[in-house]
Each structure stands twice: as C-alpha cells, then as structure tokens.
Deep mutational scan, measured.
Amino acid sequence: MAAAAAAGAGPEMVRGQVFDVGPRYTNLSYIGEGAYGMVCSAYDNVNKVRVAIKKISPFEHQTYCQRTLREIKILLRFRHENIIGINDIIRAPTIEQMKDVYIVQDLMETDLYKLLKTQHLSNDHICYFLYQILRGLKYIHSANVLHRDLKPSNLLLNTTCDLKICDFGLARVADPDHDHTGFLTEYVATRWYRAPEIMLNSKGYTKSIDIWSVGCILAEMLSNRPIFPGKHYLDQLNHILGILGSPSQEDLNCIINLKARNYLLSLPHKNKVPWNRLFPNADSKALDLLDKMLTFNPHKRIEVEQALAHPYLEQYYDPSDEPIAEAPFKFDMELDDLPKEKLKELIFEETARFQPGYRS
C-alpha cells in the first residue's frame, strides 16, 4: 500500500510507478496490472468513496492506442447498470505532455475469474450472474457493438453480487458484411471463450460470437473449470467437437473457408456428449439454455433477447427493466489503419471533457 500523499506533496508512487492523480484522489492501494497499465484503488475526496484507477501508458504502440481509444469512446457513450462506466479521466493539459491516461471507475471487490478459483456457486448465484451478463449484453448488442472478449476476468463483482462487464478494448461495431482481413492475426481474445466460426472463417462476425462466450462462462460457473481449455488453435476446435459432436452437413455448409471445411470433413465422426453427463448436478433449465448458447452453427445460436426470456431466468426476466441503447454506435473511421500519432490526438480530444474549465 502506498503511503497517503500529504496535501501538495506531488504524485504518489505505487510499486515504483508514478500515479499522478492528486489532489482529488489519494490513499492509493495496488490492485493489479494488465498488459499496459496498473490498477489501484484510491480515495475520492470529492465523492467520499474509494474508486478504481487504471493507469494506461499506450502511446508507444499502435495496438494499445487503438484499444484505449475504443474503450474510452464506447464506455463514455454507454450507460447501463451492468456495464462499468467511466467516472473521470485524468491526463496532462497538453498533448505533448500526455504520456499516461488515468481512467477512474467504480471500485468492484472482485471478478468472476477470482471468485470461481475459490468458491463453488449455488444455482441461485449462477442464475443471477447469468441474468446480469445477458442484461448488459442486450444493451451492448442493441448499440450494434460486439464485445468480443467476454470471459470471467472481464466480469466485475461486488459483495452485493452486482455484476458489471468491463474491458471493451477489443470491441467492434457489428459488421457481418465487412471482410476484416487479418482478423485472426489481430484477434487476441482469450482462445477458450472463442466461437468456432472465428477459427473457421475470417469473413465478418456477428453478435452470436458473444453468446458463445457467455455459454462458455455459464459452463464454467457450473463446474469451476473452463469447458474448452484448448492449448492452441486446432486443439481448441477438437475440444469443442469432442463435446458438441461432429457438425451436420448443414452446419458445414455455413463454413465459407474450404480449407477449414475440408479439415472438419477429414475428422472421424464424434457423438455429442449429453450435458447432464458433463454437469450431473446442474439445473435442467440451465443445461437447456447452455445447449442453445453453445450451438456450433452461429445462425442457430440463441440471441440475447431470447436467452433473457428463457425459463431458467424467469424469476428475473423483465423486458421493461432491460434497457437498450438510445442509438446504434458508430465509429467515424476504422481505427485499425491509423498511425499511433493520430490515435493519440483522438484520445486527447475524447478525454477533453474531463479537463478543468472544459467548454463543449
């Protein structure tokens, strides 16, 4: 834990890192770190609560700039109880001085990944967590956004079992017609939660990839272990087919990539493993919904509104309290091709509203 900075004593240090967030945020305490930044909790002297502050230093890398800009653009436009918001952003007053960006968010005690390492969940908890994931996802999908990296560590939890989806750095506007060349190379989302079509096709992607990830998360809540822990690309596919069985001819016809289709045709026939054999203690309604989410063919996979209306979630289902976005989200430009200098300018502009004396 960093010592509390005395008023006016300059930035606090946390594990050798400068955290320049005073005077409003003090009493910093280390939480963890990701690929390009550290997260601390801090005391907000204005709202009198502890908050989470993520320090991001992305400006050396085009990919990190892209992810940072995506996350900020999306989260500043989203407003939903099951999606983490941005409360404040701290950065230098000029673009030349801006080396880091500090993002202030609600402090959540833990995440689903940490929880599943230590606790076996009751059916009631599984049901409530799944409902909140789908409630947040309904809003995301209504904005025409794909999260693309749903996994237990991106689901934040607090002691009252509130759940918030975080990390929109890989999110995209849904565009089933656009052929994202190089899709697989830039697709760094965790393999275990990846839909089979991501490994088999490169053309376009749809909201059904997020539903697949939610199915993987439900299976993990039922058993405290990942359902498809593939060691590499082909191993991942083999794990999936080992449980779902061989795809039907109709399902194979959806695979545009001939090499991928021929690979699947070359494999020995596998039978589907019954879900109640894998999860003998699970609620039968939970397994019915799991089956509809972990469907090989993305066109037959359940959609988020149908999933919310499934009998497993009937005690929570309330369409009048499951809000959607006001308007579909649009990125003005494809960020993939922009140089990091341009992305830095866009991050600077996007964060201006939090600067003292800002006038829109």
Rank of each mutant, 00 (worst) to 15 (best):
A6T: 13
A6Q: 13
A6M: 12
P11I: 04
P11Q: 15
M13D: 10
V14A: 12
R15I: 12
R15M: 15
G16T: 02
F19R: 11
N27I: 15
I31G: 00
A35V: 10
A42S: 14
Y43R: 06
A52K: 07
I53M: 14
K55W: 12
I56C: 06
H61A: 00
R70A: 04
R70P: 00
I72K: 06
L75Q: 15
L75A: 04
L76Q: 14
R77Y: 03
E81T: 05
G85H: 03
I90C: 02
R91V: 07
I95Y: 05
M98Y: 10
V101A: 12
V101G: 09
V101D: 07
I103H: 06
M108S: 03
E109W: 03
L112M: 14
L116H: 06
T118W: 07
Y139T: 05
I140P: 03
H141L: 15
N144M: 04
V145N: 01
D149K: 06
L150H: 06
L156H: 04
L157K: 07
L157D: 12
T159H: 10
T160N: 07
T160M: 08
C161H: 01
D162R: 02
K164D: 07
I165R: 05
I165E: 08
G169V: 14
A171H: 09
R172C: 06
H178Y: 11
T185W: 10
Y187A: 01
A189K: 09
Y193P: 07
Y193H: 12
E197C: 08
L200N: 12
S208W: 05
W212A: 07
L222F: 10
S223Q: 14
N224L: 12
F228Y: 15
P229I: 05
P229E: 06
G230D: 14
H232R: 06
Y233L: 13
I243C: 03
L244E: 04
S248A: 11
E250S: 00
L252A: 08
C254G: 05
N257R: 12
K259W: 02
A260E: 06
R261W: 10
Y263W: 05
S266T: 00
S266I: 08
K270W: 07
K272P: 01
N276T: 05
D283P: 01
A286K: 00
L289E: 04
D291H: 05
K292M: 15
L294C: 10
H299W: 10
H299E: 13
I302C: 06
V304G: 15
Q306Y: 01
Q306N: 00
L313P: 06
E314H: 00
Y317W: 00
D318M: 10
E322W: 04
I324P: 00
P328A: 08
K330G: 07
D337K: 04
D337G: 00
K344F: 06
K344T: 09
L346C: 10
I347N: 14
F348A: 08
F348I: 14
E349P: 01
E349D: 15
A352Y: 02
R353I: 15
G357P: 01
Y358K: 13
R359F: 06
